[in-house]
Structures are given as structure tokens and as C-alpha cells.
Simulated assay, not measured.
Amino acid sequence: MTYDGFQIEAFEAGRGLWHARIRREDFEPVVIDGVSFPELEVGFAWSNAEAAIADAKTRIDYLNRRSVVPGQRRKVAHA
């Protein structure tokens, strides 16, 4: 699924232990404190995929508020 510029992939890492992986839709890395990440595994071991996806959406909202997405930083830096 996609959400606010990111792709979210829920996956089961053990029986009933759901996690989520997020990656930018344009496949550019997410840069956090100068460290580049092609994708991020987020959250805890949730009991179902829907909970993992909901947590991933929360993390995406946080990343977008901090403007750690490279494209957003470039726009600010060149304004």
C-alpha cells in the first residue's frame, strides 16, 4: 500500500509477529541525521498486519513532520 509518499509492506516475522517496512515511493533514500536508509523497518511485533500498517503510518507522519525526506530538505535549502 502507499501512504503519503511512502510504500508500506507488512510482513510476518514469526508466527503472529507482524512488522512493517517503509520505503519512499520514488525509491530515494530517507536521510535521518545524515544517515541514508533505502528502507526502514518500523514498529514492534504487532498481532496483525493492520496494526503494523497503522504504526507505519504514524512513523511516516513523524518523518514528514521532521522533514527528513531528502526532497523536502532540498526544497528548503534552495528556497
Rank of each mutant, 00 (worst) to 15 (best):
Y3V: 00
D4T: 01
D4L: 03
G5H: 03
G5Y: 01
F6M: 09
E9H: 04
A10T: 02
A10P: 05
F11R: 01
E12R: 06
E12H: 05
A13M: 09
A13E: 14
G14T: 01
G14P: 00
R15Q: 14
R15L: 10
G16W: 05
L17E: 15
L17D: 14
L17Y: 10
W18C: 00
W18Y: 08
H19V: 02
R21K: 10
I22R: 08
R24T: 01
R24L: 11
E25Y: 03
D26Q: 09
V30Y: 11
V30A: 13
V30R: 14
V31E: 15
V31A: 12
V35I: 15
V35Q: 15
V35L: 15
V35Y: 13
V35F: 13
S36H: 08
P38F: 06
E39V: 00
L40R: 11
L40V: 01
E41P: 00
G43V: 01
G43T: 01
G43N: 04
F44Y: 13
A45K: 11
A45D: 15
W46A: 13
S47F: 04
A49D: 14
A49L: 08
A49I: 03
A49V: 03
A51H: 08
A54H: 06
A54R: 12
D55M: 04
A56M: 07
R59I: 01
R59L: 08
I60P: 08
Y62D: 14
L63A: 05
V69F: 02
V69I: 10
P70W: 07
P70T: 05
P70L: 11
G71C: 07
Q72I: 08
Q72L: 12
R73I: 12
R73G: 08
K75Q: 14
K75D: 15
V76A: 10
V76F: 07
A77Q: 10
H78Q: 14
H78T: 14
H78M: 15
A79R: 14
